[in-house]
Design a protein around this nucleic acid. Sequence first.
DNA 1: AGGATACGGAACGGTGCCGTATCGTATTGG
DNA 2: CCAATACGATACGGCACCGTTCCGTATCCT
Lengths: 206, 206
Amino acid sequence: MNPGPADGIGATPRPSGRPRDPVCEQAICRATLDLLAESGLAGLTIEAVAARAGVGKATIYRRWSGKDELLIDAVARLTEPVRPALRGNLRDDLVVLLDALSARSRSSQAARILPRLLGEGVSHPEVLRHYREQVIVPRRKRIAEVLRGGIAAGELRADLDTDIEFAIDLLVGPVIYRLLTRPDEALPADLPERLVDAVLAGLRPR
Amino acid sequence: MNPGPADGIGATPRPSGRPRDPVCEQAICRATLDLLAESGLAGLTIEAVAARAGVGKATIYRRWSGKDELLIDAVARLTEPVRPALRGNLRDDLVVLLDALSARSRSSQAARILPRLLGEGVSHPEVLRHYREQVIVPRRKRIAEVLRGGIAAGELRADLDTDIEFAIDLLVGPVIYRLLTRPDEALPADLPERLVDAVLAGLRPR
DNA sequence: AGGATACGGAACGGTGCCGTATCGTATTGG
DNA sequence: CCAATACGATACGGCACCGTTCCGTATCCT
């Protein structure tokens, strides 16, 4: 921006020489996440990443200082692409959001990465933190909006407002928990629906 | 073989030589779980296990063929020691069981091992399977009993009987999910209580 | 054209762990 | 006492990955 003289104060003065290829970053991060999903941190070696990305190791070390930084950065680039359309109805909106969650979790990549990151979260909190900020929190925000709408409309208990996070855990927790502890069993297609209905109405007889 | 007269058919005939020290197995498995909790699978090396257990590597290889077998066996020896006393009341019993769950999860060892195993479950399902059978399933069985009691007493919807597992996920899921995704935040002491009440009564206004 | 930097690829020494073998010692049964 | 096996300790060759450095080539700016 401002290539001519009188360059701006903080403007980076474009170093001479061949510029870095942005395609590389992308290929490296993609390879990192692929390997993480496939074989976990054990299979996540710089050499494997370089090979899968079709890149020399030097190209990686030119950008990141080591495996940890690379992983954190790759995870940080995960973002939430799909924003399912809502219908304005509390119950149906929650079903839509939880449906999106289970659909995403059915995709092998996301389903495999989450458990790895949680496992790693014990000893490398930063990695989990970035994933939480980039992926988890945005999802939860949408659920929070729907829930607050429900409270405003009188469809939900008013005191829920005090702890929306708790209510979100109530909805999301069972899906993720099941996914993590019984990864071989497929999620039933009607799980979100039954979950939302159960949480809204409670388990006691009417 | 067959030292005494009229020896039993399948009786193992006590091999000659110095017998294996059962204390070793115990020390090795304990060291394995400790290391798994502390530094994950990355820190779980045979040499580290041997060092921590105060044992030669040969003593490990004499019993297990490698890291995978050792890990599976160590996890299989995890059992559920505490069985909290119930009070015969549906709501209170559920609170007691979920309280025990969160208390256990507060202990650093259990809290650290679970995420590691879930992460490993993606590529090594056997490890997770043994943990599930030894630790998770027994816990869930107790919850199932309480829930079935509630159904019989008419305190819970009768159609819940079709899918008790679903109801258990509803209760356990939020605790574990929160524990895994926000390991730095301590679990509120009243979480089990609020959780049980919310799940029983539902989120809608009365 | 020429300088500077990035690129893929290959090689390097260093390190940590593997699984095995071999010590000297200890503990069992015969 | 002797044979057999387990024990802790140590040493070994082999391998995979680390992080760095060097190629020859490609791509930018002046």
